[in-house]
């Protein structure tokens, strides 16, 4: 279960060390934008040691490596793949070929290390106009892709529009990302809300993203994590309804009924699937009982 993903700057020990107690389901240890070019070596070693010694139990580790147009990305992968982080986030992914290039090198490393292929998954960061246009191709380029992630800051620069709090300028991109991800059967994550002092704004933004179909949302501030988790968790009402659905289905089966209805509404396969998702998540959160 991954609702929130928190960015932590890769060369700042003070931030990294408390990564597992800030409430985020996943941490993104950043070797890219948060690290100056002359400190890439230091960040790589620091992140590697932090994962090796601290392990961050109970939290998914995602590494944002540097992009293909830099001299750093292979070295980043050389250091990170042996640690088996759950995911590698690749910035500025613009087409399927980008994914395949990362994929091929990761496979090479996994083979060398004797790891099973696709041990470490990919989360392409889509933050260019071309990337958004190619979102489905990116999401379905490789079995290694587990999720795609929208980066609105770089994207709005590429679109030559102003990034606003309301985010009308990225509405199309958000919708396009969700469609592509769902069509490719992978998860999809929303861009961070960047005003760290706007506690109401983050809630509105997260609720909007959830409404569009995003799996979860990234954050650059620990202060936003709790709200993101809350918004992307099922409500008690959702959970109660999900159990009702499953119970109705069970009774229907017992009675040998073909069609089952609940509160006067037909329960079809998508409703059951959704109810099961809700229950799975509730159980993972300790809110539900095993169905």
């Amino acid at each position: 279960m991954r609702r929130s993903m928190l960015f932590l700057p890769g060369n700042t020990p003070n931030m990294i060390l408390s990564g597992d107690c800030l409430g985020a389901d996943a941490i993104i240890l950043d070797l890219e934008d948060a690290v100056a070019p002359d400190q890439k070596d230091a960040a790589r070693v620091l992140v590697r040691n932090a994962i090796k010694y601290l392990q961050f139990p109970g939290v998914e580790k995602i590494i944002r490596i540097n992009s293909l147009d830099t001299p750093y990305w292979k070295k980043d992968l050389d250091e990170m793949i042996p640690l088996k982080p759950e995911l590698i986030m690749t910035p500025k992914t613009s087409c399927a070929a980008d994914v395949l290039e990362f994929d091929a090198y990761m496979s090479e490393l996994e083979d060398k290390l004797g790891y099973e292929r696709n041990t470490v998954k990919l989360m392409p960061l889509i933050e260019t106009a071309l990337g958004v246009e190619n979102a489905y191709a990116i999401a379905s380029a490789s079995k290694r892709v587990a999720a795609i992630f929208l980066g609105a800051e770089d994207l709005s620069a590429d679109l030559r529009c102003k990034r606003t709090k309301e985010g009308k300028e990225i509405l199309y991109a958000r919708g396009r990302m969700v469609l592509a991800a769902r069509a490719a059967n992978v998860d999809v994550y929303d861009t961070p809300f960047t005003d760290v002092n706007d506690d109401e704004g983050i809630r509105v933004d997260a609720e909007f993203a959830k409404g569009l179909g995003f799996t979860g949302k990234a954050s650059i501030s620990p202060r936003h994590v709790a709200v993101i988790n809350e918004v992307f968790s099922p409500t008690q009402k959702d959970i109660d309804y999900a159990y009702e659905v499953m119970e109705a289905i069970r009774i229907g089966k017992e009675q040998g009924k073909g069609a089952v209805s609940l509160h006067g509404k037909m329960i079809d396969a998508p409703i059951v699937a959704r109810a099961q998702q809700t229950i799975d998540m509730a159980v993972a959160l300790g809110l539900g009982k095993e169905a």
Partner: peptide
């Protein structure tokens, strides 16, 4: 401090 805020909550 993020850790301080986590403890406060």
């Amino acid at each position: 401090d993020p850790v301080g805020l986590v403890m406060a909550q």
